[in-house]
Amino acid sequence: MSSANARNVGIVIVSHSPKIAEGAADMVRQMVGSAVPLAWTGGDVDGGLGTNVAGILEAIETAWSPAGVAVLVDLGGAETNSEMAVEMLAEDRRARVVVCNAPVVEGAVIAATESSGGSSLAAVKRSAEEFYA
């Protein structure tokens, strides 16, 4: 992830399943390239299916970009835990992290594609959310 461009919006993938999260990240890397800061997290603290706030915070930290971070989530807890993680960020960072209303795999690829072209956080979110438009 060291080759990622600090100008580009970071992408965080949050799934109940670490395999899905990692697999989605693999798709992003292979299809979009390495210009985009990217991190994934999945599973609860005991290694089972689920999500955890600490893991999400760490992923946001890893994918952090001054341009902001777009978070892609799968179901229920992934979304609420992501929102909780955003709430826990320092105030100056909070406004630069958005949870997208988009399918996790497709949304991650599209968000990263948009980000790789240097688009703003708002444009990255809008593009990912086009799937439900």
């Binding site: 299809m31 594609t113 790789s116 240097g118």
Partner: peptide
């Protein structure tokens, strides 16, 4: 399909 679409849009955005 997906991969060419990504490449095409990435190129277009330049």
């Amino acid at each position: 399909h997906a991969r060419p679409s990504v490449k095409l849009t990435q190129c277009a955005k330049k």
